[in-house]
Structure formats: C-alpha cells, structure tokens
C-alpha cells in the first residue's frame, strides 16, 4: 500500500489475498450476449468485449494508469542500479555502468553487517512474534463469556490503530531513565539502564514492541478460521474420548492450519522488510551495531548521502530476495502441507 516497500513490513498481518488463495473462475454460462451482465465462460473476441464493456474498461483506466505510474515506473526505475544517476537527470539514469554498484555492496562490510542484523530481527519476528497470535486466539476461543471476550479483543486490537510514531514515543517514554521499566529496576535496587543507547537491548525492545502492537490484531484471521471448523468434528472427538487438550490438538489446530500456512508464507516474503519505520524512529548511532537494517542503511546511503544508484542496487537485491523467498515458501508449503497462495 505504500510508497516504500519496507512500510509493508510493519503490517505483517494483512488480509489474505483471496483471489490468490482461490483463483475464482465461476462457471457461469449464458447465451444472452445482448444482456451484458450475464456471466460467460467462453472467451469473446476483443472487439466484441470492447464494444460491449467499454464503460467497464473506462472505469478501470484511471486505476490502471495510477498503478503503472506509481508502482510500475518505480519498478523499472530500479534500472538505475546499473546506470549512473544524476539528480535532476532522467529517472532511469544516464549511462550504463554494468555491475559496478552490485560489486560495491558485495564488497561493503557494512552491508553484510546490516544484512545479518536484518536477518536476525526478521528471524526473531518469525519465531517469536508470528506464533503468539495463534496462542492468543486459542486462549480467546476457550472463553465462554461473550462480553468478557469482546472486551479483551477490543483492548488487544487497539495498538494496531496507532501511528508507528506514537508507538515509538511510548517505547521511549517507558524505557526512559525516569520511565516505568527503570522505576521497577530501581525498586529492586538496580541501577537505571539507558536502554535505547545500548546496542545489546535493541533486539529485545524491537520484538517486545512488535508483540505489543500486533498480537491482538493478528488473532482476527485465526478467530475467523476457528469459526469455520465443523462442530461435528468436536462431537466425534468427544465420543472418541478426547479431552479438551486433545480436541485442540487434533481438531482445532488442523482446522486453522491453512490459515497459519498462508500467513507464514506472506510473513516469509516480508522477512527482510522488517519494520523499517520503527527502526528508523528507535535507533541511533550508538545502537547501529544491532539496530541498523538493510532498509535504514539504504535510506542513509541513498537519501542522506545521495548515492542513489548504490542504494537502488541494495534495494533491488532486497526486493528480489523477498520475491524469491515468497515463491520458495509457497513451493515448500505446497509440497509439505498442500496449502499455498496460488
């Protein structure tokens, strides 16, 4: 949804693209070509289609032009990774320089440091943040008092609606020298810690705030999937003597497995886009050792130091890895569990 690819990283839990999950091809059949609304399965020639449906194509024109300009031109704009770019010149660069910028980042030790920082933050998010909404959804699923359940849901969804700037402000406030965390440390007789100035704390802070912001909202899709499980399966399990725990293990979890796999694939695809904006707001030169990620590094290289082509080369590398990982995860998921995005 964004100007910037990395912004999507903050929204790990999105909507499953249903068209991708189940490509719709309704077997509509209707001979009445004169009535345009009829569904048809047979292909009509383009000329007929244009004459009949031109208002529909006209409606799609503006959105398509928008997508071409604001999504596809930047995609082609990545060509400046292989061309010399002059600010104010052509947005596709001026002359070919081959793999110069690619060689440059492969030989750049800072790049590899931020690459591993990114991989570690992304890995921690996947291992720690991803499963928690499943656990919370299962816990909520055991609640029978509807008003209680609804209250808990309202509270846990709330952080999702805050700007990342405000989340960063809250993190800084809680972790400041006078903040709550240091008050607790002080109560136990410890020395206050300047958390945001210490590189060894950054990953903990990042993951914790990520949990706070996303765990509640992340339960929605799982709760939705839970409502689709056939009640008879539970009844059958009870007859077979399964207790609650075994019902959860043998009925509930398999029931939401397609949803888990789908979300996992999407998360793997955004693996390297870890919360660019949050890192940008929370890091500082003192914590670069653990906090600096690919997106923030290319932001500084490109827009602060004005090395557009070099930064574009890094960005292209990141985007291609993202695409490869989503395709790979999809393939693995289809082979192993038979669920995939397409």
């Amino acid at each position: 949804m964004s100007v910037i690819p990395a912004r999507g990283g903050g929204e790990k839990v999105g909507v499953v693209p249903s068209s991708a999950v189940a490509p719709a091809s309704p077997p509509g059949a209707g001979p009445g070509q004169q009535i345009a609304v009829r569904r048809r399965s047979a292909k009509v020639p383009w000329r007929t289609a244009l004459r009949r449906d031109w208002p529909l194509y006209a409606m799609a024109l503006l959105p398509v032009v928008f997508l071409l300009i604001f999504r596809y031109v930047p995609m082609l704009g990545n060509v400046i990774a292989f061309r010399r770019f002059r600010p104010g010149g052509s947005i596709f660069g001026d002359e070919w320089v081959g793999l110069r910028y690619i060689d440059m980042f492969i030989a750049d030790p800072t790049f590899w440091q931020v690459f591993w920082n990114t991989a570690i933050l992304g890995g921690l998010s996947l291992v720690i943040v991803f499963p928690l909404p499943i656990v919370l959804a299962l816990m909520l699923n055991e609640v029978r008092k509807r008003a209680f359940k609804r209250t808990i849901q309202s509270i846990t969804y709330l952080p999702h609606f805050l700007s990342i700037v405000i989340v960063a402000g809250m993190v800084m406030q809680l972790l400041s020298l006078e903040g709550t965390v240091n008050q607790i440390i002080g109560a136990f007789g410890g020395e206050p810690i300047a958390f945001l100035q210490r590189a060894e704390w950054f990953r903990t802070i990042y993951v914790t705030s990520e949990i706070w912001q996303t765990v509640g909202w992340g339960t929605i899709l799982y709760l939705a999937a839970l409502t689709t499980i056939d009640q008879q399966l539970y009844e059958a399990a009870v007859i077979d003597g399964a207790n609650r725990w075994r019902q959860t293990w043998h009925v509930t979890l398999p029931g939401i497995r397609p949803m888990m796999v789908t979300l996992l694939i999407l998360n793997v695809g955004t693996f390297l886009n870890v919360g660019f904006e949050k890192v940008l707001l929370l890091y500082n030169p003192l914590t670069y050792a653990t906090a600096d990620v690919i997106s923030t590094y290319l932001y500084r290289v490109g827009l602060v130091a004005n090395n557009f082509s070099y930064a574009a080369a890094i960005g292209l590398f990141q985007a291609i890895i993202g695409l490869v990982m989503v395709l790979g995860a999809n393939l693995v998921a289809r082979r192993l569990v038979g669920t995939s995005l397409w």
């Binding site: 964004s2 100007v3 910037i4 690819p5 990395a6 693209p17 068209s19 991708a20 799609a60 398509v64 997508l67 300009i69 604001f70 999504r71 596809y72 031109v73 930047p74 995609m75 082609l76 704009g77 990545n78 400046i80 770019f85 600010p87 947005i91 695809g269 997106s295 290319l298 932001y299 490109g302 827009l303 557009f308 930064a311 574009a312 960005g315 292209l316 990141q318 985007a319 993202g322 695409l323 989503v326």
Partner: peptide, 25 residues
C-alpha cells in the same frame, strides 16, 4: 490481466530510491 497487475505489486515493488526519484521528478 487487470487482477495480475494489481496483485503483482504486493510481492514486488519499486523500492525506496526509485519511488523517491519518481516523486521528485
């Protein structure tokens, strides 16, 4: 094709620098 044009942008997009260059130009 129309759906594809839209969905593809979910999995691959221009990136920070090309977007910035486009908006500036």
């Amino acid at each position: 094709l129309l759906v594809g044009i839209a969905v593809f942008t979910m999995f691959f997009n221009g990136g920070l620098i090309p977007n910035y260059v486009l908006i500036s130009s």
